[in-house]
Each structure stands twice: as structure tokens, then as C-alpha cells.
Nucleic acid binder design. Structure first.
Length: 184
DNA sequence: TCAATGATTAGC
DNA sequence: CTAATCATTGAT
């Protein structure tokens, strides 16, 4: 999903968009996944059709946006952790809660299929990241299965929420940011 | 390190 | 029913 553009329709003919630069994977087979134990009304979207948004409230304050993956009856998804937005919006979506806040996404968007018709969709623009390095590392903010390296981020992006140990973006090097190429 | 904040769940 | 937990964030 890294390099894909998340797009939300806002009002008549305007859209809000940003490029996904950080993600995490979750699977029923490991204990950090919401669907690891059992299917409930709150996590059922995760067990449903792939290609839908799974959105939940966390810590009472923030929402997190996921894309359901794999197959029905098997809980798995990708958490969108950070977006890079055009121009002056740098680091405004650097964390899953901030991302959901900026795009005003909540439970009303839960279980919606990814589609332009529904006002929230994703476009594959990952070819714009040609020759760009993707860092693979451990997930953040979980208490179980901390060892799995199921977090990925675009090394050259300043919008990544938290960098892996030892991975500092040199101030001399120009960071990656979205261009017209990534626009919907 | 810790508080804010509320839905959800484990346990009785 | 109650207490603990939680895929977070921002401030210290």
C-alpha cells in the first residue's frame, strides 16, 4: 500500500488526498490483531470482505483506519499509520490517530468498500516511488507479538510517525513528498 | 513517564 | 456489575 494515494471527497468537487508512507499489517494468527480472539460486533468488519475500510475508536480519543485484506472469514488488515500531504501539510498525518482526524474518518465509515462512489477511495500510484527505499521494522504501540517486523515505511519521507532505531533522515538529503504524479 | 478519554472485554 | 485493557498522542 505504500505509495498509494488515499482520497476523500469533501463537498461538491473538492477532494482531500495524501500518499500512504507508513503501514502495519495485522493477522488473526497473531495476538496483536483485533480479530485474534473472536468475532464481535466491533471487529466484524475485519472478518468481512477484503477491500473495505475497518475503522475503530482507540483510547477513547482517536480513530484508526485500516484496509481489510486477504479473504472473508479471516481477520486481517493493514493499518494506515501516516500520510504525506502536498505542500504545507507536512507531518499533519504522522500517526494513525492524526490521519483519521485530518480526514474526519470515524465509525460511520467502517465497513465501507473502497470506492469513489462512497467518497473514500485509494489509487495505486506506487510507481512514483521507483528507486525509493522501504524500511521494514517492528510495529508500534502493541503489547503482544512485538517481535514481528510488520511495519513498513518510506525511508525518505519526513511524514513517517516514528523511525526505526538507527534510521535518521539526514538533514542534507531531500525528503520525498507528493507531486502532481500522486494526485487523484 | 503519564494523563486524557471512552469503547470493549474479562471476570465474577 | 466492575476493573483492566487498548493497533494513541502530546507534554514533561
Amino acid at each position: 500500500m505504500i505509495g498509494c494515494t488515499l482520497v476523500k471527497k469533501i463537498g461538491g468537487n473538492k477532494v482531500l488526498w495524501g500518499v500512504i508512507v507508513e503501514t502495519e499489517a495485522y493477522s488473526q494468527k497473531e495476538p496483536a490483531c483485533h480479530g485474534h480472539k473472536k468475532r464481535t460486533p466491533s471487529n466484524q468488519t475485519l472478518f468481512g470482505e477484503p477491500g473495505r475500510f475497518y475503522i475503530y475508536l482507540t483510547y477513547g480519543i482517536y480513530h484508526c483506519v485500516n484496509i481489510v485484506t486477504d479473504k472473508s472469514e479471516w481477520a486481517s488488515g493493514v493499518l494506515l499509520r501516516a500520510l504525506s500531504m502536498p505542500d504545507e501539510e507536512e507531518r499533519i498525518c504522522s500517526g494513525p490517530g492524526l490521519l483519521a482526524r485530518k480526514f474526519k474518518l470515524d465509525r460511520t465509515y467502517d465497513n465501507r468498500p473502497i470506492s469513489k462512489k462512497n467518497g473514500l477511495w485509494v489509487i495505486n500510484k506506487s510507481s512514483s516511488l521507483k528507486n525509493q527505499k522501504i524500511v521494514k521494522t517492528t510495529r508500534i504501540g502493541i503489547s503482544q507479538a512485538k517481535d514481528l517486523q510488520w511495519r513498513w515505511y518510506l525511508q525518505s519521507s519526513r511524514s513517517v510517525s516514528k523511525r526505526a532505531k538507527g534510521d535518521q533522515l539526514p538533514s542534507t538529503k531531500k525528503s520525498w513528498s507528493p507531486s502532481i504524479e500522486n494526485s487523484p
